[in-house]
Design a protein around this nucleic acid. Sequence first.
DNA 1: TTGATTTAGTTTGTTACACAAACTATAATG
DNA 2: CATTATAGTTTGTGTAACAAACTAAATCAA
Lengths: 145, 145
Amino acid sequence: MNNDRTSNKNDPSIVDGLVQLSFLIQSILGRVGAIHNLSVIQIRLLGILRDREPSMLQLAQHLNLDKSSVSGLVDRAERRGLVERTTCPSDRRGFNVRITSAGQQLVHEAAEEIERQVNAITEVLAPAERSVLTSLATKILSPRE
Amino acid sequence: MNNDRTSNKNDPSIVDGLVQLSFLIQSILGRVGAIHNLSVIQIRLLGILRDREPSMLQLAQHLNLDKSSVSGLVDRAERRGLVERTTCPSDRRGFNVRITSAGQQLVHEAAEEIERQVNAITEVLAPAERSVLTSLATKILSPRE
DNA sequence: TTGATTTAGTTTGTTACACAAACTATAATG
DNA sequence: CATTATAGTTTGTGTAACAAACTAAATCAA
């Protein structure tokens, strides 16, 4: 049934490890977000907008959300002055979404705190182990651009 | 500013890697859940109940949710016949939450599919790398029970 | 050019989820 | 026994996600 020599019923499996680790990371994101009154998805939105000014549709693809979900998401962020819709000169139907300076400020602070807290949980690792972990994560992520 | 020899502005950082990896894992959980009409939190609930029959409060601590959130969560799962509240003989205020056989069935199927999909994304790694990743994840997770 | 069709995005309606505050009922404590 | 603490639910609010219906602009076809 299980021919994978690298795991068995007694060992923690790679699946369990990654899933539990993802919950741990997400709980950090949620906790840090809560400090700034941001949900995880709002943090993700602002994070994406740090170096992009995508259309609503591109945003939807990035976030893997329905376009109608992105409408609401951007609405709420815009109401708080964190992002703004900019008109797209080449297509009067579309908007691009741009982060405001208030949004930049907020995501910067949140990112710093996330950095601290994620680093904190990796403190059980030796420096060499940390760099191995980084390269393994990068390797897993690289196939999806 | 950044004295950590294992990362710099150009390298992908361990923080970015772990955060992005967590989103990737969560998207798998969401996708697999959707197949069975389960949200990520419902999957997590059923996953916890696979080997436990906790009180509502213990469940809240486990999920890091407010007790009122757990009431609703269990309500919805119970309505679908996935879990049931069992009375606690020693304390007539409290309930324990037990997974039903329908719930067992469902979480088993979901877990198998999650297993497949998480394994699939780790296929870029060599077997030795996979076991290293598992041990690093385990090491990060071990301090919190 | 005009008419049909896509495309970009919003709106509307529904459900899940999460919290806090108020509440109910039981347990524990003085 | 009266008080207080605990377990859980209820109620009210806001965010989040989707699907279907809709609006308006763009593109395509004749």
